[in-house]
Amino acid sequence: MKFQILLSLWSFVAGICMAITNDNLLQRSRKNSDNIIELTDGNYQKILGTGRNAWIMVFLTSSSPQIGCATCIEAADEYKLLAKSWFKDHPDGVSTAGEEETSLFFAISDLKGSKIPEIFTFYGLEHVPRFFLFAPGGNIREYETIDLMNNGGMERVLGLAGSIKKIANIPDFNIYQPMNWSLIITTAFITFGISYLFKRHYELTTKLLSMRPLWALVWTLFVILMLGGYMFNLIRGSQLAGVGKDGDLIYFLPGQSSSQFKIETQITGVIYSGLAAAIVGLVLAVPRLKSYYKGSGKSTIVEVGSSAIFAIVVYTFFAGLTSIYEIKQPGYPYPLTKISSLFK
């Protein structure tokens, strides 16, 4: 009887000593700028499986190019926004708006290379991303699975926040969308430029705005921008770029023809623009140059030279485009030889 009492007392004391406190979780959160605890093979059982008085949201994901999880890449930025919004109103991770104090922290485990994290094996994951919400108490095998909405961006962030509020009974979880300063600065700059031109050079400005070639160029660029996937990135909230298993930057999402990084849009847009400009130059500029030098000894040289230059530019940009097709769709059967390879 005494032995059982001593064993129970020892278990109670050991549980108290091993429990992870909110202060400890807060310190772990503050190690990263996004306030998200990184789960490793050495700490995930302690954080999730020992006594605690806090809810923990866990994001299991993969940024590995070999996995090619486009949704994981999208959800990563959304998860960071979720955590930053929570800590903006609750610097210590504690909400006092409900009937009782409620603590909430965020954690992540990311499969970055070929080594699978132990936590993935522990929960028998067959696909990512997954969102688990662990209640206070420290039972590592009991959690709520939060479904991931198909629509990305703010809609998905609001959906995750709504699920946490409902399950954890947290009434004051607000989402703060970051200010898009680049859009504000660009809009202000364009507005100032147009206003200045109208005020100082009214006749010249109206003449320029009434030029049909100018509007043709503007709408051509707009179409090229849309072809590059700008609206796709805007709607899906895609990540700017990826990170390889060796820590190097990845500009193109390999093997994913229906998903892309934001920087892919910019690169593809530049290629489309250069290709379109070179073709227009080949079709329109060369005849005009020939007409301008008509009757002089330079006419033939100018025509042949300008045609060759525009043709090389067309080939270069088109070779770059087919290279992207090869990255996005392995086995693409129509690659072009890169001009740079001729000089190796």
Rank of each mutant, 00 (worst) to 15 (best):
N32W: 08
S258C: 10
S163H: 04
I20Q: 05
I312T: 14
A75L: 12
M226L: 15
D41W: 07
S259Y: 13
S210A: 13
I108H: 04
N22P: 03
P254Y: 14
L48T: 01
F105I: 03
K115M: 06
W86A: 01
E264N: 06
G193N: 12
W10T: 11
I20R: 04
I16W: 11
M154H: 03
I185V: 13
S63G: 11
M179W: 11
Q266R: 03
P65S: 08
L227T: 02
I309G: 01
L204Q: 09
E155Y: 06
F122G: 01
I224T: 04
T220I: 08
Q266D: 06
G138C: 09
W219Y: 15
K88Q: 13
G331A: 15
T121Y: 01
Q4E: 11
M18P: 01
L249H: 09
V283N: 04
I312Y: 14
K290N: 09
G242P: 01
I194R: 05
L208S: 07
V157C: 02
I175T: 02
W215R: 05
S273F: 12
I263D: 07
G331M: 14
D23E: 13
I194S: 11
G320A: 07
T145Q: 12
V313S: 09
T186M: 10
N53L: 10
K294L: 12
A188E: 05
S257W: 12
F105G: 00
A216Y: 11
I312F: 15
G124T: 10
V314A: 09
G274L: 09
S307G: 12
S273R: 00
T205E: 02
N53Q: 15
F122H: 12
S340K: 13
Y143F: 15
P330L: 14
F132S: 04
A135P: 08
F252G: 03
S307I: 04
Y334Q: 06
A76D: 08
I190N: 10
N151Q: 12
S63N: 11
T21P: 11
A241S: 05
S273K: 00
I37S: 03
D92C: 09
S258E: 15
F318T: 06
C72I: 02
I56F: 14
T268N: 08
Y44T: 01
L183C: 06
F310W: 13
S11R: 08
F59P: 03
L289T: 08
N35P: 03
I309C: 06
L217S: 05
F106A: 07
F3H: 11
S238P: 00
A277L: 13
F318R: 00
A135Q: 15
T96F: 14
S273H: 02
G15K: 12
S258N: 15
S210Y: 09
E264W: 01
L82S: 03
G331S: 13
I56W: 05
M1L: 12
N43M: 08
P330F: 15
W219G: 02
S238C: 06
G124D: 09
Q4K: 08
G51A: 14
T96L: 13
G124V: 10
F198M: 15
I271K: 00
S8V: 12
P333H: 12
T187Y: 04
Y334K: 04
S85L: 08
F343K: 10
A97V: 02
